[in-house]
Write a protein that binds this DNA or RNA. Structure first.
Lengths: 228, 228
DNA sequence: AAATAAATTTAGTCTAATCTAAAAAATTGA
DNA sequence: TCAATTTTTTAGATTAGACTAAATTTATTT
């Protein structure tokens, strides 16, 4: 972690940096004002204001009408926040009996606590977890994290098998749906039917079959199994 | 905990409530604007503003030029913050290898995290501790906590014995002084000499004697031992 | 290449929390 | 008691972060 001399960002700044980071990864491109406004649940004009502040602090590269990109410093700050968020999620589930659908809001608060020692001791206390309860990778103290080779369930072909390794949507509604259908990380899944019409699929899991809508299938990450 | 319907207080409001609570207890009276300004490290005019806001929300009783007192709701809110602060301190020391002189600033941040489940599960995880690392009592989920019968070391008479049970000053400077002299909670102490001139005292602890200045003696809480 | 639509920025307002300086009230003490 | 001092409050300004409405720039269509 290079330039961490003085990491005093406001709560709002940290949330923007995090949102830009996430959007850069899902859109695989620069981030537009509107996209950011949507992500932050705010107005485009507010976003423009904040972008200027972030740009003045060299946390993002910004040219009018051209969207933003994180600078190196901005990316480091964003990753630090994400690291803390995911570590706290592990803590809540592993130590405090939270279900995976209950951790998000609390972790949104805890991720802003500023103490390097706290973060690193928490990491150690949890025995350096590699993934959070939703299967997302946890950056280490240097900001490095594994880019995994997971794919969406919806992209599996007929007959292919895989292990459920993560969720894209981590809303409690979605997670509760998964709970209700006993779909949890680590479960083995095989695609036994694909329906062109509505893109739903029939999967085999444990000893039964289950029909999965496209909306579900596009929000479940799978690691495919080479076998057979 | 009676009226906890909607506990959405700002960070600043929570800090004021906590400060008023502490001042009410140490001053044993209503809290003046200036005292609160001193405690909050801010200006009297800012305090007046905030007091008005708190009064509008019925968290304090306020009459111009008369100082403030916490209302029932204000006291409950303050106690909740204090409960969280102290629980987090225990967590940091017991689970994350923090020394007792390192916990304060981090706990100042953690005390504002809003999640009843988090607080109560943390309490359970720590096995319902009764005291924080500085010997201060931790309120339970209903806001009740033991008012203990501790006294200041400086009030002990010649020959009296006691156990060190808490610190009044929890600055890291003071705590480091105690560490350096092996004074920790639970240690047995006997007053073997009192010096009228500068109010210092000589104490016996473990197998040696130690000279204690008045400043130290007025910041160490002792539970006296009846024996002998 | 205009004309229209969409995205973005600017200008001006608002709120919470702070500040300084000035005014007002309460307290102290000769 | 009443003048001096201290405490407290008011008035007005400031800042971060948000908002609305209007203006401007870019993108899309004909």
């Amino acid at each position: 972690m290079a330039s961490k001399i003085f990491d005093m960002f406001s709560l709002s700044e940290e949330n923007y940096l995090k949102a830009i980071f996430h959007l850069e990864h899902s859109l695989k491109s620069g981030v537009s004002t509107n996209a950011l406004a949507e992500e932050m649940q705010t107005k485009a004009s507010s976003v423009t204001d904040m972008i200027k502040r972030l740009s003045d602090k060299d946390l993002v590269n910004y040219k009018k009408y051209q969207g933003v990109k994180l600078s190196r410093a901005g990316r480091e700050a964003a990753i630090e926040v994400i690291r803390k968020h995911r570590l706290w999620e592990v803590f809540l589930v592993e130590k405090l009996n939270f279900n995976w659908d209950e951790v998000h809001e609390v972790a949104e608060q805890l991720e802003h606590i500023k103490s390097e020692k706290l973060t690193n001791e928490l990491d150690k206390f949890l025995e350096f977890p590699k993934r959070d309860p939703h299967g997302d990778p946890i950056p280490d103290a240097n900001g490095n994290f594994n880019v995994s080779d997971r794919v969406l369930l919806s992209s599996l072909k007929l007959g292919e098998k895989g292990v459920c390794v993560g969720v894209k949507d981590s809303s409690s509604e979605f997670l509760q749906y998964l709970d209700k259908n006993s779909i949890s990380l680590g479960k083995k899944i095989e695609v036994v039917e694909k329906e062109d019409f509505d893109k739903s699929m029939l999967i085999r899991m444990d000893d039964h079959k289950l029909s999965i809508s496209n909306q579900i299938a596009t929000n479940l990450y799978i690691k495919t199994l080479e076998n057979e």
